[in-house]
């Protein structure tokens, strides 16, 4: 037991030090995955003890940049869970279409694949021209990649399959240009997406959204932080606005549970009462 407890305390002290130095607050992240990432860092930089990481952080800028890169999960894909996008298309789009303009917040957009997926759906459903998508993340490196919209051509095959499963109406190749080994997202999709830095842990609400997407972010938070972020979403949504979370996440046992009705239980799409 001893070693684990000691490591646990060291993790807490390290997270506190990161917060004091950078203002990035990982203190209420779920411990098991944050510990995995700290161990990845230790391996990468050949650091034996967690306690050695704090002085290193103050001395070595490349190390401190790596901390933030390692702690921010940027694993994502286009049309992740195709069924979810199909549900957005079939169940949510008809409601969104009743508004003269639509504001969507995609929180935790990482490298942008899902923001572009959403843009494609809205374009095919003829809503994109009156939509603004605010796609946010706290990781500036990921945001830069999202803004560029350049992805590896290797991934496109899987994206194309998912696009079709999500009920895609055209050819997926209409939405990108292949160049060398890259796929460059078409400019028409970028037009109404604003990529911006926002930190769910420390920043405040975003205001008057019709739809908020935040998928596979809450799994990294402990109960306290999950609740704080869900309340942030609640206060950022209009009356009758929609909230979509990851397929393995839920509003159960959160303080906003009773303020929302499920629209699609399986795909975790809720509507504010």
């Amino acid at each position: 037991m001893e070693k684990t407890k000691k490591e646990g305390t060291e993790v807490d002290i390290f997270l506190e030090a990161i917060f004091q130095k950078y203002g990035y607050d990982f203190r209420n992240y779920a411990k098991a995955s944050i510990k995995r990432r700290i161990q990845n860092l230790q391996k990468k930089f050949a650091i034996k003890k967690i306690s050695e990481m704090i002085p290193r952080m103050h001395q070595d800028r490349s190390f401190s940049n790596s901390i933030l890169a390692e702690f921010s999960i940027t694993v994502t894909e286009m049309f992740r869970d195709p069924e979810f996008y199909r549900s957005i298309r079939e169940n949510i789009v008809p409601y969104l279409d009743t508004y003269p303009f639509i504001k969507i917040w995609h929180a935790g957009c990482a490298t942008g694949e899902e923001a572009y997926s959403l843009a494609i759906i809205l374009k095919e459903e003829n809503l994109y021209h009156k939509t603004t998508i605010f796609a946010t993340d706290f990781n500036n490196v990921a945001l830069r990649k999202a803004r560029n919209g350049i992805y590896s051509l290797d991934e496109i095959k899987e994206f194309t399959q998912s696009y079709q499963k999500a009920g895609g109406k055209h050819s997926f190749s209409d939405y990108y240009h292949a160049k060398y080994k890259s796929a460059i997202i078409d400019n028409s999709l970028k037009k109404n997406i604003t990529f911006a830095n926002h930190n769910l842990v420390t920043d405040s609400d975003f205001g008057e959204m019709h739809l908020i997407l935040c998928r596979n972010v809450l799994i990294y938070f402990n109960k306290i932080l999950r609740d704080r972020v869900l309340n942030l979403f609640d206060s950022s949504l209009i009356h009758k606005g929609f909230l979509a979370i990851g397929s393995k996440e839920s509003l159960n046992f959160s303080s906003i549970e009773k303020k929302f009705n499920p629209v699609d239980k399986k795909n975790k799409i809720y509507r504010k009462k």
């Binding site: 098991a32 995955s33 995995r36 994502t76 799994i219």
Partner: peptide, 11 residues
Amino acid sequence: EEDKTFSLSVD
């Protein structure tokens, strides 16, 4: 987790 609950990750 230490408290014997599950966590998921898409790392």
